[in-house]
C-alpha cells in the first residue's frame, strides 16, 4: 500500500525526545479515490435522476408523446395557481399529507417509546412479546391494506360489526383519517420500538445506578437519564417517521382509494397518479420538487429544534 505508508519505521516506535516526524502526508486525491466508488453510484443513481427530474419539470413532458415542449417554470406556476386543475388537486393532496403526518408522527413516537420501555424490562415471555409487536411490520403494505380495507368497511366490515358501531371508516373524514393513522401505527409501531429498544440498551446501567443511589424516583430517572440518553436515537426516529409519514401512499391507495372524493389522496399518491397513470411527467416532477422542498424545510426545523435544546 504505497498510497499511505512511508518506507521508514512505525510511527509509534520512535524514541521519546526526538522531534516527531511530519505525519505521512496523504496525496491530495487519496480521499477522493476512496470515495469514488460511492460517488459514482451516488452520481448515477441520485444526482443524475434528480437533475433529470428537474429538467423534466421544466417541460410539458408526456412520456410517450414525441413533442416535449420547454415551458420554463409554468408547471410550478400552475401548481401555485389555485384555479388550475393540477394546482387545486396538488394542494388538496398536500393538505392530506400534512393531516396524516401531524396525526401519525406523535403517536408513532410516543407509543413505540412506551412499548420499548416495557420490552426493556425483565419478565417472562419477553421475547414473544417483542416478536408480537414487531410482527405486523413484516407484512407488506398490500397485505395490510387489503386486510384492513375489508375489516374497516363501514357496511360489511368486522370492525363495525364487533364494536356495534356505524362508522364509515373508509368513506368519510375524519373517520378515514382515524383508520389510516390507526392502521399505520399498528403496522409500523414495531420498527420504531426496536430502534428505541436498541437506544435504551445503549444507555449505561451505571447512570441508572448512580441516579438510584442519589435517591431519584423512576420518573426522575426517566426524565434525567433515559430521555437524554435517547436523544440521538430520537432525532433519527422523529425525522425518519416524518419522512415515512409524508411519503404515505399504499395505505390510502388500498384502503380508501383516496375517498371521500380525493380527501385522503396524499401527495405521493397524486404524484404517482399524475406521472404514471396520466403520463404527465412534467407536472409530476414539479410536484415532487415542491414536496421535497417542503420536507427539507421540515427536517431542518426538526434538527434545529433538537440542537437548540441540547445547548445548555
Amino acid at each position: 500500500m504505497s498510497l499511505l505508508t512511508r518506507p521508514r519505521g512505525l510511527p509509534g516506535a520512535q524514541a521519546p525526545g526526538r522531534p516527531a516526524p511530519r505525519t505521512p502526508r496523504m496525496r491530495p486525491w487519496t480521499p477522493y479515490a476512496f470515495l469514488a466508488p460511492y460517488l459514482v453510484l451516488f452520481a448515477v443513481f441520485m444526482l443524475a435522476p434528480i437533475a433529470f427530474g428537474g429538467w423534466t419539470s421544466l417541460h410539458e413532458w408526456d412520456i410517450n408523446l414525441p413533442a416535449k415542449p420547454f415551458v420554463g417554470l409554468r408547471n410550478y406556476a400552475d401548481l401555485f395557481d389555485p384555479a388550475d386543475v393540477d394546482g387545486a388537486r396538488f394542494w388538496t393532496a398536500m393538505r392530506a399529507t400534512a393531516i396524516f403526518t401531524v396525526a401519525s408522527v406523535p403517536l408513532l413516537i410516543v407509543l413505540p417509546l412506551l412499548v420499548a420501555l416495557l420490552m426493556n424490562g425483565r419478565f417472562k415471555g419477553r421475547d414473544l412479546y417483542r416478536a408480537v409487536y414487531f410482527a405486523p411490520y413484516v407484512l407488506g403494505v398490500a397485505v395490510v391494506g387489503l386486510v384492513w380495507r375489508f375489516l374497516l368497511d363501514g357496511n360489511i366490515g368486522l370492525v363495525n360489526h364487533y364494536l356495534g358501531l356505524d362508522v364509515q371508516w373508509t368513506t368519510a373524514v375524519p373517520p378515514a383519517w382515524v383508520a389510516l393513522v390507526g392502521v399505520t401505527v399498528w403496522w409500523t409501531l414495531g420498527l420504531n420500538s426496536v430502534i428505541f429498544l436498541a437506544g435504551l440498551q445503549d444507555i449505561p446501567r451505571e447512570l441508572h445506578e448512580a441516579a438510584m443511589v442519589d435517591g431519584a424516583s423512576a420518573w426522575h430517572r426517566f426524565r434525567a437519564v433515559t430521555l437524554p440518553g435517547l436523544r440521538p436515537v430520537t432525532v433519527f426516529v422523529v425525522n425518519a417517521t416524518i419522512l415515512a409519514s409524508a411519503n404515505m401512499f399504499g395505505q390510502s391507495y388500498l384502503i380508501t382509494g383516496g375517498a371521500p372524493a380525493d380527501q385522503t389522496k396524499t401527495a405521493i399518491y397524486l404524484i404517482a397518479e399524475t406521472g404514471l397513470r396520466q403520463f404527465d411527467m412534467g407536472t409530476a416532477s414539479a410536484m415532487s420538487f415542491v414536496l421535497a422542498g417542503c420536507l427539507m424545510v421540515v427536517s431542518a426545523l426538526v434538527f434545529g429544534a433538537f440542537r437548540g435544546r441540547s445547548k445548555p
Binding site: G154, I156, T170, T171, A172
Partner: peptide
C-alpha cells in the same frame, strides 16, 4: 346506506 365504500355494494 350513506357513504358506501368501494365494491361493498357488490359484496
Amino acid at each position: 346506506p350513506a357513504q358506501v365504500a368501494q365494491d361493498s355494494q357488490y359484496a
